[in-house]
Amino acid sequence: MSALLTVKDLRTEFLTRDGVLPAVADVSFDLKRGEVLGLVGESGSGKSVTGFSIMGLVDAPGKIAGGSIVFDGQELVGADEETLRRLRGRRIAMIFQDPMMTLNPVLTVETQMIETVLAHESVSRAVARARCVEVLGKVGIASPSERLGQYPHQFSGGMRQRVAIAIAMLHKPDLIIADEPTTALDVTVQGQILYEMQQLVSQSGTALIWITHDLAVVAGLADKIAVMYAGRIVEQGPADDVLSNPTHPYTRGLLDSVPATTTPGQRLRQIPGSTPSIMQLGAGCAFEARCTRATSACSLMPDMVTIGSRSTRCWNPIVQQPSTASTESVA
């Protein structure tokens, strides 16, 4: 099966008073229909900017400075706004971390959902409303017909996020980009939404990019994982392999810092130091100052190399037997 989405050498920059900030650099991955990619990393690693770049939502002073984004055979980098507008919502949808970035507080949910349908399809309002009721029911909102007439403030945080997911599902898009949509929700609601997204992917063949800093979430959701650090992907491959036997020291550090993988009574392991400013990155590996495996070779930026089933950006990758930090223990 050919890839639905192919991102190649993507570079997204922001012009600031202090110079050019390369928020995303040399990012490459592909995604097939029905696949789930977990895009993982700390805050500021470039995950969300990657998603916005795919959607064509990078506004000035930001711009896509290089690379290619091919969606179903169509190049999106350099595409005109009308082309992107036709794709957004209908074939590519995005779920934001804050549902109020999707919902207008002064309009009823019914108005917002129906207008979303009518923006891309010539159907009657009755047909559009029936679809809205159906989709709200699929995301677990009880009495969807009655709740359509309510305003966003009349819903709880979890219910607002369900509405935002329902809006993303209205046109059964080929690709959904979910930008940490469950971060602010309690564990029970989070689990319900993850289940609903899994059902959507399995039943409709929708491809999903799940952006998160939470490895426990992607452990049970993603088919593939791409780990980002300081604007670059440092490791990617099948989820089970990346989580059970990581090759990049940063991925290893992320896994070691998960409480579930720490022996009770022992101190929680952590990555030393802090994420560097992207504005101040040198020519070498951005993780060098925090890495216990760093050598003189790390003064130069490594290329992505293939190790087994995955690729990694490291001069001194971890090559060993699978660790005890398995997918099950992370989850």
Rank of each mutant, 00 (worst) to 15 (best):
residue 118 L to Y: 08
residue 118 L to A: 07
residue 119 A to N: 07
residue 120 H to F: 05
residue 120 H to R: 03
residue 121 E to Q: 11
residue 121 E to T: 11
residue 121 E to K: 09
residue 122 S to V: 06
residue 123 V to H: 07
residue 125 R to L: 05
residue 125 R to G: 05
residue 125 R to N: 03
residue 127 V to W: 15
residue 128 A to M: 01
residue 129 R to D: 06
residue 129 R to S: 08
residue 129 R to P: 05
residue 130 A to W: 06
residue 131 R to N: 00
residue 133 V to P: 09
residue 133 V to Q: 10
residue 134 E to N: 03
residue 134 E to P: 02
residue 135 V to P: 00
residue 137 G to I: 05
residue 138 K to E: 13
residue 139 V to H: 07
residue 140 G to A: 00
residue 145 S to F: 11
residue 146 E to N: 09
residue 146 E to D: 13
residue 146 E to H: 07
residue 146 E to S: 04
residue 147 R to G: 07
residue 147 R to V: 07
residue 148 L to W: 04
residue 149 G to R: 14
residue 151 Y to C: 11
residue 151 Y to Q: 08
residue 151 Y to I: 04
residue 153 H to F: 15
residue 153 H to D: 10
residue 155 F to W: 12
residue 156 S to T: 01
residue 157 G to Q: 01
residue 158 G to I: 02
residue 159 M to E: 15
residue 160 R to K: 13
residue 164 A to W: 11
residue 164 A to N: 05
residue 165 I to K: 13
residue 166 A to T: 06
residue 167 I to R: 04
residue 168 A to V: 00
residue 169 M to I: 06
residue 169 M to T: 03
residue 169 M to W: 08
residue 170 L to R: 12
residue 173 P to L: 08
residue 175 L to M: 02
residue 175 L to S: 01
residue 176 I to M: 10
residue 176 I to G: 06
residue 180 E to W: 00
residue 183 T to M: 03
residue 184 A to M: 00
residue 188 T to K: 04
residue 188 T to P: 08
residue 190 Q to Y: 03
residue 190 Q to I: 02
residue 190 Q to D: 08
residue 192 Q to S: 07
residue 192 Q to F: 00
residue 192 Q to P: 02
residue 193 I to H: 05
residue 193 I to G: 12
residue 194 L to N: 09
residue 194 L to C: 11
residue 200 L to Q: 02
residue 201 V to D: 06
residue 201 V to A: 09
residue 202 S to L: 14
residue 202 S to M: 14
residue 203 Q to Y: 06
residue 204 S to W: 13
residue 205 G to M: 12
residue 207 A to S: 10
residue 207 A to F: 01
